[in-house]
Design a protein around this nucleic acid. Sequence first.
DNA 1: AACCATCTATAACATAGGTTAAGGGGAGAG
DNA 2: CTCTCCCCTTAACCTATGTTATAGATGGTT
Lengths: 264, 264
Amino acid sequence: MNRPLAYTPSTPLGRKLCSYMVLTDEERNFLSELERNVTKLPARADLLQQGERYGTVRVMRDGWAIRHKALPDGRRQVVNFVLPGDIIGFYCNLFETADHGVTTLTSVEVASFAPDRIFELFKRFPRLAAALAWSGAKEEAIIAERLLSVGRRTALERTAHLIVELLKRLSLVGLADGGRFILPVTQEILADALGLSIVHINRTLRRLRDIGLIEVAGQQITVNDDKQLSSVGQFDELYLHLIRAPKRLEHALDQAPDRSRAMP
Amino acid sequence: MNRPLAYTPSTPLGRKLCSYMVLTDEERNFLSELERNVTKLPARADLLQQGERYGTVRVMRDGWAIRHKALPDGRRQVVNFVLPGDIIGFYCNLFETADHGVTTLTSVEVASFAPDRIFELFKRFPRLAAALAWSGAKEEAIIAERLLSVGRRTALERTAHLIVELLKRLSLVGLADGGRFILPVTQEILADALGLSIVHINRTLRRLRDIGLIEVAGQQITVNDDKQLSSVGQFDELYLHLIRAPKRLEHALDQAPDRSRAMP
DNA sequence: AACCATCTATAACATAGGTTAAGGGGAGAG
DNA sequence: CTCTCCCCTTAACCTATGTTATAGATGGTT
């Protein structure tokens, strides 16, 4: 195995996995092959419709999208925000039909590849498989935290919490600068993400502005006092699992027996 | 590879994975090795405490538990119910600390093994790795559906929905019989799972009883009219992904190239 | 058999957040 | 330039759900 020390792939997915462990040439090649087939789409396009049969796996390369679920009567819950490097329909190609939709918020660039590549990945690149599984677990942790928000935090707390979460996630990929970031989202979508009505989101944002914790100018949000905003939102970054565990992951994988051994 | 046709392992985890695909002898041996080290615990024991460092991976063999997250002031959200065959702290051994707790509801039997075994599994048994990843994705789907419930369904809908969900999940593992099952859960826990107050859960259950949709006798719940209860809860079993995709999973894995190939 | 702790049940009251309604601003289209 | 559409904003009012309080079941313990 051959490991360049400070290599940073140009692909968002590669970059993401790089933060977990050092990739070999072979692994990087495989990943960039996955991201080769790129498509551009405008804002408000459906990448996946609830009830649709899964066809391809996609990687978000640039732009924002939301993952959402709807009830028959139109009520809708935004489950998560899809940011660059995130995968759409990863394991899910095994499911019969999609139980959620994915819709772009901005114009986006996505790469698509055949679901079979996932299995190939599991067979040929166990380290990548483990890393992807790990990032899937992180996504689940984010959803669980949102469930805690919607179930048990007040409107003000929830809203503060989401803003801090997005700030942290975006900072991590260089999309936020000094507490300032672009939130390409209507208040309706914010409401659907937080389980609130659009009117109440408006009230709540105004309250946060009045207290002086945030400033809003169009889609740009400025967090004035992230310390205090975190405390309003009861934000504990434990769940984001930002602490990369590269050494543990690498070591463990490299030391695990590669081939069969007898049972004791 | 040697594949007995109708073999059913005695271990809950093995049984679960068996429902996705036919296991080889080697795979079954490995799994049963994982479940060898069994411990018994009483009800209301913490299998994992929020904030704790992960030590071992566990498989629930028998009994119920809940996965829950708490806020500093004590408000709590139950994220999911842990049933036999479910894994506790799977990928998560890579995280620094647990962002949730796991507490038993009944006396339980759990198997424990070292986190390293997970990596071994990824390297030696890609098919098992894919199957576990798939079941992880199903768990995520259940949490996302609960988020939809808590965010957008009314108390009555949520409660109905949860009862139907548990009925379906338990039926699948033979723990429900003719719409009747044991729910080893206080109303407080139900409230924490649904983002409601304990008083309101009580009101809501009474309403469901008054309408005649369910009957409650101690911990035993009887669903009288699951068709109507499903419709009250806007239940769409899409998200449970009950349709096993064994052929797709097996085929895909068996046909994926096993070793390196040149880039085009 | 009496005690204690834990649950369930219900009533009375309080409020966070939903709903409806109406006006205003900005940006793209003609 | 102004029309239109979409989004934001705010006010007034309403209701689903939370809170507090109390009593009754239930079941294990001494």
